[in-house]
């Protein structure tokens, strides 16, 4: 029995020491040129399978790609010319997953050392669940009111605040369904360039990752129908001064959600009366 206990102790000690053994931090997976590591003052060209410690430095020459694999199999690519200290790359490797033994014993230690609590005694510690629907999480606010856009042609850029680079997603359905088009990640959505990739019809869109209550409505018109609709609106505009008429036209068109058309008339108004701050401020909303 005593022998068995001694054997178990040695095994446990062995497992424990293995936890602290110094494994290589990185292994070279690919070296497209002559990336080197300095050993005893000499530059040694790295080759596939070489082990690198976190204390090592590597030198990347021009037009060379060095691909390293972390101990947890994450891949790190180095392309920029210069000297790189490998310890600065450790953050990209999840050290928690390095050793199964250490992970297990950490779990045991954490479980042992965490007291068994009860919600009845400390309810504040157990109040992380709230029973309310969230509205407005992580919202990006568009500079223009774009819950509805009627569009056929013309420059139209929808920017948002806070400034954040996200792709815009376009759907056929208002609520469910896969995106029919995902735009490039950008700080704004260019409806004019997106419309060239979509057929006329009704679409719903939003910035990726937004928890909007409802997707935004985008109607891509055919040329004739669009012109007829715009002409109908323009017929109702009251003529005043040229600049004022242009601004009023833009305003009515924006109210009717013909935003690209509205931007065109706001431009005209600003060109005719550049000192008018209301015109300038209105047009600024259409710029990224």
């Amino acid at each position: 029995m005593i022998k068995l206990i001694k054997l178990l102790s040695i095994l446990l000690l062995g497992f424990g020491l293995k936890t602290f053994a110094a494994d290589p931090a990185f292994i070279v997976f690919y070296n497209s040129g002559k990336a080197t590591k300095t050993v005893a003052g000499k530059a040694v060209v790295l080759k596939k399978g070489d082990h690198l410690q976190s204390t090592d430095q590597v030198v990347i020459p021009e037009k060379t790609q060095l691909v390293l694999v972390c101990a947890n199999f994450a891949v790190v690519q180095l392309k920029t010319k210069g000297t790189k200290e490998l310890k600065t790359l450790l953050a990209q490797c999840n050290q928690k997953a390095v050793s199964a033994s250490s992970a297990y014993f950490k779990y045991v230690w954490n479980s042992f050392s965490h007291a068994h609590k009860a919600p009845e005694k400390d309810p504040r510690a157990y109040m992380k669940t709230y029973g309310a629907a969230s509205r407005g999480k992580g919202s990006l606010i568009t500079k223009l009111y774009v819950d509805t856009i009627h569009y056929y042609t013309g420059a139209l850029t929808i920017a948002w605040t806070p400034i954040k680079t996200v792709p815009s997603e376009f759907y056929k359905g208002a609520v469910d369904g896969d995106a029919v088009l995902v735009g490039k990640a950008s700080k704004y959505a260019k409806i004019d360039s997106i419309s060239t990739k979509l057929k006329p019809g009704v679409y719903y869109w939003d910035m990726q990752g937004q928890q909007s209550a409802r997707r935004k409505y985008l109607k891509l018109w055919t040329k004739d129908a669009y012109q007829a609709a715009v002409t109908k609106i323009l017929n109702g505009i009251v003529a005043t001064t040229p600049a004022e008429k242009a601004y009023l036209t833009g305003f009515i068109l924006e109210e009717q959600h013909f935003l690209a058309e509205a931007a065109k008339y706001y431009h005209q108004a600003v060109n005719m009366a550049p000192a008018n701050q209301i015109y300038v401020a209105t047009l600024t909303r259409f710029k990224p």
Binding site: P119, P123, M127, T129, Y130, G131
Partner: peptide
């Protein structure tokens, strides 16, 4: 009023404070 319940995170809601 706070809408929080008392219980394990994402667990069964049996009580409130």
């Amino acid at each position: 009023g706070y809408a929080n319940f008392v219980g394990e995170e994402e667990g069964v809601i049996r009580q409130f404070s």
